[in-house]
Every structure is written in structure tokens, then in C-alpha cells.
Simulated scan of single mutants.
Amino acid sequence: MPTMVPLARAFRQRGHEAVIATGPAMAHLEHTVVMPDIPAPSDLGPPPPWIPERDGVLKVPLWSDALVVASAANILDFARTWRPDVIVRETSEYGGQIAAEVLGIPHALIDIAPFAPLEIPLLDELVDKVRARFQVGATEPVLTAGLTPASWHPAQHHFRVPIEQGDEEGPEIVASFGTYAQWLMPESTLPHVLVEALGEVSARAVVAIGHGEWTGPRPPNVRLAPEIPQQRLLGTAKVFVTHAGYSGVREALTAGVPMVAMPLFADQPRNADRIQDLGVGVRVDVKGLTATVLVERIQHVLNTRKYHDAAENLAAQIIDLEVFTNIPDHLVSAV
């Protein structure tokens, strides 16, 4: 949503035809082509019996032969009539690359999760196994577009995704566990621990708690909301408490906001480690986490100048990058 949808719009604004191949759950988006064999998370059955404060980081499979095959087959079926000149895929969508290899056309990569491939053991062998089913060989992307500076992760080209400007009277602390957290951890009290901790910090805070009944604490300095305009709020925030999903991390880096990273699954632990390595925040392990420990970590980042300086330095690197809506021009040149 923060990158592929506006990127498709940028292609169309430059006079190109562009559609988004996606699953039925995203069919409401403009200019979509629905791949009927791609399930939504809710179609995958109930979440595992996982409580992060008890079990720690959840190991989730980031690869499925069946999904990659279905994706490639769906795109190829559509391509018989639409005949694309190039396929642009995001990091975890391998079917698009394989479809491009079958069609003999270029493919490009928008790197929305640069550390995610490292979570898949024997990834090259897995992709080659699917390629063999389609009787094609591997090709390299003609363009790899990173959305953070090279200091975060290298790529052929680096671009910035702008964020909305914040309100002057916005919260000092923004907190969110991301899109899938409520579905994955319905029995967890981790959001309660977070809100309790924020209640002990002398700062205005807002927390995205998802939809559903809230039975946790309600401190007067903490606003609870089902959803929040995260990009806009980060524009004036002083600390971001996050599960360290890449999109949120990228938005915080762009806004120059240091982070308290509480990774839950997938590439989030690697993102949290990178946050700590670059000095733009700290990693906090969720297993056994208490409000007392979390209060200390939040206050430490909030009141320590070096984290703010490092975050502002990275934001300065990002502002010097080319805006990502220029990717169509680079791709046309590359192909």
C-alpha cells in the first residue's frame, strides 16, 4: 500500500499502462487484476497458539511452493491477453519474477523488505525448484530499487518514499504493532504492557490497538485508536515504539524519529538489530517483557540525544535520495 499502489499510479501518470496483480482481499484497489488463487491471511486458518511475552519471536514460513506457483500461473494467464512489457515485483513476490522469465521479458524489484530473503533457508534452491516446473532459467532484475539509504541495505538504486507532514501538536510517542499483530496474537497481553508503560512516561502518546474490545489500561496521557495516520504522526513524534516491520521502520527513518523496536516475527528481528547497530534506537525482546523494563527503554531513547542525532542523520541521507515516483523513468531507461 505505501509503495506499490502509488508507484503504479506514477507509471500511469507518465502515460504507461500499469495494473496491480494481487489477491482477492485487495480487489478494491484501483487498477487491480485479481489472482484468484492467492489467499488472504484470514484464509490460512487460525493463528498459531503464540503468546509473544511467553514464547518470544514467532518463526513464520516466508516461502510456499504452492503460492509461488499459483502466483506465476495467474500472472501468465493474464499475460496471454494483456502482454506486459515488464513485471515489477516486491521482495516477497517470487511468482512475478518467474512469470517474467517464462515470458522472456525484464523484471524489476522494489525492495520493500530487504532482510526478508535472509529468513528463507536455501532460497535460491527453492526458487530454482519452481523454475524447473516452468522450464526456465534464472535472470537478474534490470532494476533493484531500495527504499532506504545504502547505510541500511545496499541496492542498485536508492529512492525515498515521502511521508506526510505531522501536526505541531501531535503526540510525542507513536506506538503500533502493525497490520497482522492483532490477528496473530489475540491472547497476548503485550499491548496492555505497552500502554501501561506509556502511562508511566511523561509524554503524550498514541497507540494503534486494532479493532475489537479493549480491556487493558487507559492512562490519561495515552490515546487509544483502532487505526492511526502513522506517517503523519511520525512527522513530529520524538519516539516510535514499533514491532520493526520494514514499512514502519522506513517511515520513522524518513521522519528522523528514533525507535524502540520490539520484534515479533519474520524479518523484524533483523530490522531491530539494524536499528540498534546504526544507533537510531534500541531493541527490546518481548519474551518476559514487563512494563517496568519497557518504561526504562522508552525513557532512555526519549531522553538520550545520540539516538535523535543518529535518526536525524539518516533522515538527512534519505532526503538527498531521489523520490521513488521517478522509478518509472529509471525502468524505461533500463529496458
Rank of each mutant, 00 (worst) to 15 (best):
G170E: 14
P61I: 07
Y307N: 02
R54T: 08
V174Q: 15
D329M: 10
T22H: 05
A72H: 13
I98H: 01
A261P: 04
E172K: 11
G178F: 03
F78T: 11
P24R: 14
E312T: 09
Y180N: 15
I327A: 03
I20C: 00
I327P: 01
S71G: 04
T139P: 02
Q135S: 12
I51L: 07
G146L: 04
R133Q: 15
T91R: 12
L44S: 06
P48N: 10
G96L: 03
V335Q: 09
W183D: 14
P24F: 08
L194A: 13
P61T: 12
E196T: 11
V206M: 10
A175C: 15
G210Q: 15
N303G: 03
W63R: 08
L294R: 01
G288W: 11
A145F: 00
H330I: 00
E168V: 05
E296V: 03
V195P: 02
R204S: 14
G23V: 03
Q231D: 05
P154T: 03
V241A: 06
V249Q: 14
S333F: 08
V257I: 03
I209T: 14
V88P: 05
V130C: 04
I173L: 12
M262Y: 02
G256F: 06
D55F: 04
P84V: 11
S42A: 12
A18T: 08
L264Y: 12
I112A: 03
K306F: 12
H330W: 12
F115A: 15
T144C: 12
L234H: 12
V301F: 03
G96E: 04
W63G: 01
L234E: 11
A203N: 10
T81M: 07
V142T: 04
M4A: 06
A113G: 09
L143E: 08
F159G: 00
D267L: 10
L278H: 00
Q231G: 09
A205Q: 04
E101M: 05
P171Y: 14
A244T: 00
Q135M: 06
E90H: 11
G45T: 04
Q230D: 01
G56E: 07
L143M: 06
I20P: 02
K306M: 13
I98V: 03
L314Q: 14
K306W: 13
V34M: 11
D285F: 01
D267S: 10
E213L: 10
M259I: 07
L184Q: 10
D65V: 12
A244M: 08
K238F: 05
T325L: 15
V5L: 14
I173K: 03
Y307G: 00
L67D: 05
P121Q: 09
V19E: 13
V257L: 03
E93L: 08
K59A: 14
G256W: 09
F115E: 08
E53F: 02
R274N: 01
E53M: 03
A100T: 09
R204F: 00
P220V: 06
V239F: 13
V332L: 15
L76F: 07
T325M: 14
H243C: 01
Y180A: 13
T304M: 04
